[in-house]
């Protein structure tokens, strides 16, 4: 799966949690999930769990704790998919 495909799928997935939807339309890999998109910090875990289901992967605490930007999530998903495939 290509990085852009993961990014697009994740942006769809995060939509219902984002308070500032306009910012999501111009989101990049550097967009901060809590600070820029105004996602409730408690709901970030729901987003990560939904990503686990959507991409059929498991994200552990340590990886989840590092997540700040959309790029962080995309990189974790990409890495997990690569590990699963190999």
């Amino acid at each position: 799966m290509k990085t852009q495909e993961i990014f697009d799928q994740f942006v769809q997935l995060i939509k219902k949690y984002v308070k500032d939807v306009q910012k999501l339309e111009t989101a990049t890999m550097e967009t901060k999930i809590i600070d820029d998109l105004k996602v409730n910090s408690a709901r970030l875990v729901d987003i990560i769990i939904n990503s686990e289901d959507a991409f059929d992967i498991e994200i552990d605490d340590d990886d989840a704790d590092q997540i700040r930007t959309i790029g962080d999530v995309v990189n974790v998903i990409e890495h997990k998919l690569r590990v699963t495939a190999s």
Partner: peptide, 10 residues
């Protein structure tokens, strides 16, 4: 700090 990122909560 409530509402902070996971690193701070951690």
């Amino acid at each position: 700090i409530r509402g902070g990122d996971r690193e701070k909560v951690k």
